[in-house]
Design a protein around this nucleic acid. Structure first.
Lengths: 193, 193
DNA sequence: GTCCTCATGTAACGGGTTACATGATTCT
DNA sequence: AGAATCATGTAACCCGTTACATGAGGAC
């Protein structure tokens, strides 16, 4: 019996397709992939180097990507990866499959759920911090959007990138609204409702 | 050097405080905890039995909870856990600490981000499914809210429970709005924007 | 008869993070 | 002088899920 356990979906991890997908944009090194993720999908997806590098090696073994090595002076060799035909096929297959249930976990909500045991000021400071975080996030999203409009107005992926940005903005706004509303609620009625 | 690796926050897992917190509501068995989670915080937190039971054993060893065993006919012994003073203290400590950065990963957004490579119908079906999912979620949240108002109108935790529900509703509505808006966008302009 | 609920637990496994290791170059 | 950027990689380790194992009693 060898198909037990494992995250949420057998042997096919989530990260592999993220990486594969980034390579549909253009050939990149592991380092590039990380940077690109940070400036494009960071609001809904992250990867660490400790995940990316071993992954790229596995993908190379599986012939889903091809590696070209560029020698550099004073720096380690730069490995530029590009999709193979098989890699592209597998990626497209995944892309068409229904989205698997997402595991959501919000530590903030968990803390608020038990908020009765928390001093009102602490509770408010949690909300406060959250509000600030969402504000920063919104600003970052707007920044990204402006950057895209400026630098990538003709990029074939632009439309889809904006789609995800838009969701980020709408959700961040809703969270912001909720944080404000909740803070007002506690300001008016510190002890109880 | 023994404090390497590990999720996001050293040896203190996220689940332990979720479990500890549930026991502030009332003493419960592992089974109860799971059920309670499903009817209260499921929209932002989940736990599996395979996590809960071993966790309760560890918490018992660490003297953060106390176990009472109830014998039953035809069923396994029922273990009812309650917080110890130490357990309560550790829980309250955690409750006051700032919320750690949350890892967000949305497979849907990842797929849409690469949407250029997807046939428009498939892309729409992803959005469609998401829209339905959010609609069901909203209905469930409203159901929970009504249930709370009916059965727990005087529960000391009610206010905080409603707070988390409210966030669930606002965010689900925003996501729903986004899904509709995006579907309209693609209906009008299937090929490109 | 078959399915659901109650009830607890273990084994296997995949996944992903953080910290460490290394080191030249360029910016401040 | 010190920090950040470029660049790749490994080791340790925690976290949590799924599938399996077991079994009585009640509902339909």
């Amino acid at each position: 019996m060898r198909s037990r356990g494992g995250g949420s979906g057998g042997i096919r991890g989530r990260s592999r397709f993220a990486v594969l997908g980034m390579l549909t944009v253009e050939p990149m090194s592991g380092y590039d992939i990380k940077k690109f993720i940070e400036t494009s999908v960071a609001h809904f997806w992250r990867e660490s180097y400790g995940n990316i590098y071993p992954l790229l090696n596995r993908l190379t073994e599986e012939k889903l990507v091809r590696r070209r090595t560029q020698r550099q002076k004073g720096k380690p060799d730069r490995h530029v990866y590009s999709l193979t035909a098989r890699g592209r096929t597998e990626f497209l297959e995944w892309l068409g499959e229904p989205v698997e249930a997402e595991t959501v976990r919000s530590e903030l909500l968990l803390k608020l759920f038990f908020g009765r045991h928390l001093a009102t000021e602490r509770l408010e400071s949690h909300l406060e911090e959250y509000r600030e975080h969402q504000t920063r996030l919104l600003a970052a999203l707007r920044g990204t959007r402006e950057m895209l409009d400026r630098n990538h107005a003709d990029h074939p992926d632009l439309r889809y990138w904006l789609l995800t940005l838009r969701r980020g903005e709408l959700v961040a706004r809703a969270r912001l609204q909720w944080a404000r509303e909740s803070l007002h609620g506690f300001a008016k009625n510190p002890g109880k409702k």
